[in-house]
Each structure stands twice: as C-alpha cells, then as structure tokens.
Computed example of a mutant assay.
Amino acid sequence: MRLIASLTSPYARKVRIVLAEKKLDYKLELDDPWSATPAVLAHNPLGKVPCLLLEGGDALYDSRVIVEYVDTLSPLGRLIPERGRERAEVRTWEALADGLLDAAVGARMEMIWPARPEAQRCQPWIDRQLGKIDVSLAAMADHLGDKPWFSGLHLSLADIAVGCALGYLDFRYPAVVWRDRHPALARLMDKLSQRPSFQQTLPPTA
C-alpha cells in the first residue's frame, strides 16, 4: 500500500497512527495538497490528503474511509467495534474529533491563506469556528470523565481521533490552553503521547 500524505495533516496522522497500531507496512509518499499541482489530485479528485493507494491502482479517501478499511486488514487490536451501539459510539467520537479539526483548519486558513487579502478576512466566521472547538472539547471531556478510554476498556479509534485533534491544537493553536480547562483530556493525551504510534507521527516543528 502507498499512503499519500502531508506530515502536518492531522487527518493523515490519524491514518498513520492506525497503520502503526495495526503493524501494517506501507510506503509513505509526501505531498503538499496546497501546491498548484498536488500529486494527490491524480488519485483523489478533491486534491486532499490522505489518500491510500491499493494494489491494482484503486484509491481510498478520506481518512474515515481509510481507517475503516485498514482496521479490517488485521485482527490485531481491533480499533472499531464490528457492530452495534459500541461501533456507533466510536464512529461518533471520531466524527466529532474530525469536526473539531475541520473548524480548526478552516479558521487557520481564513487567518493565513495568502490568496485572501487582510481586508477580506472574516473575523466573525473565524470566531464561529473557534467556538465549535470550545464546545467540542467540553463535550469530549464530559464524556471521558474518569474513564481510561472513550469507549470500552481498550484503545479505540475514538481515542486516536481525539488525540489527533488535541495534537493539532498543540501544533497550530498553542494559545488554546485546553489542558487547564479539561484535565480529563490532558490525562488521555499524556497516555497517548507515550505510544510509539503517536511519537513517530508528530508533525515537524520547523
């Protein structure tokens, strides 16, 4: 398998962590989806990463589709329950974590995208996205509480997705002091940060 990704994409990081947790081999192909001619465009019409290329040339996207497929490739450490309420719960928390990322990425692009002049930047829209981050963090923290993991007694995709969202806030929004306000999430992130899969996929600092 070949994974087209960016080292700074939190969605791609989620896929890379799942691949590492499942102990599956793949070739990482780096691409910049914001360039004029991203390589991923040849495989994903949306021009977004991550994109997983399978033998035979078939392509899978987006991250939620990829991680669901990858989780079926090995019985080792299933990250998504096979059926029922537990499965829906894990996928719901993944959806909320991805939604937080959508808001964070959207707000950041509104603030820094070079093609938009400063006078055209919309602060109320940015504030609306930042508000989504705040309420999402509160919902995550309230659900986690004193539990060791988001769903069940073991690591699941819900924890990985939330960890990637929190990691992105650390990376792009260091002024958001979520640890002070949500100690339950801080405990979870401390635990996730000790896993090799999270350590090996940290975004570059420069």
Rank of each mutant, 00 (worst) to 15 (best):
R16I: 09
K22S: 09
K23G: 08
D25M: 04
E29P: 00
P38W: 08
A42V: 11
G47T: 06
C51Q: 07
G56E: 07
G57L: 07
G57N: 12
A59I: 07
L60N: 04
S63C: 12
S63R: 04
V65E: 01
I66D: 02
V67T: 11
V67N: 04
V70G: 03
D71Y: 11
P75R: 13
L79M: 03
R83E: 15
L96Y: 14
A97K: 04
D98L: 15
L101Y: 07
G106M: 05
R108A: 00
P114Y: 09
P117Q: 09
Q123N: 10
P124W: 08
W125K: 03
I126S: 00
K132G: 08
V135P: 00
A139L: 14
A139F: 11
A141H: 10
W149R: 09
H154T: 13
S156V: 10
C164E: 06
F171R: 02
V177D: 15
V177G: 11
R179T: 14
R181F: 14
H182I: 09
A186D: 14
D190K: 09
D190P: 02
K191D: 12
Q194N: 11
Q194Y: 09
Q194L: 15
R195A: 04
R195S: 05
S197Y: 09
P204I: 06
T205L: 13
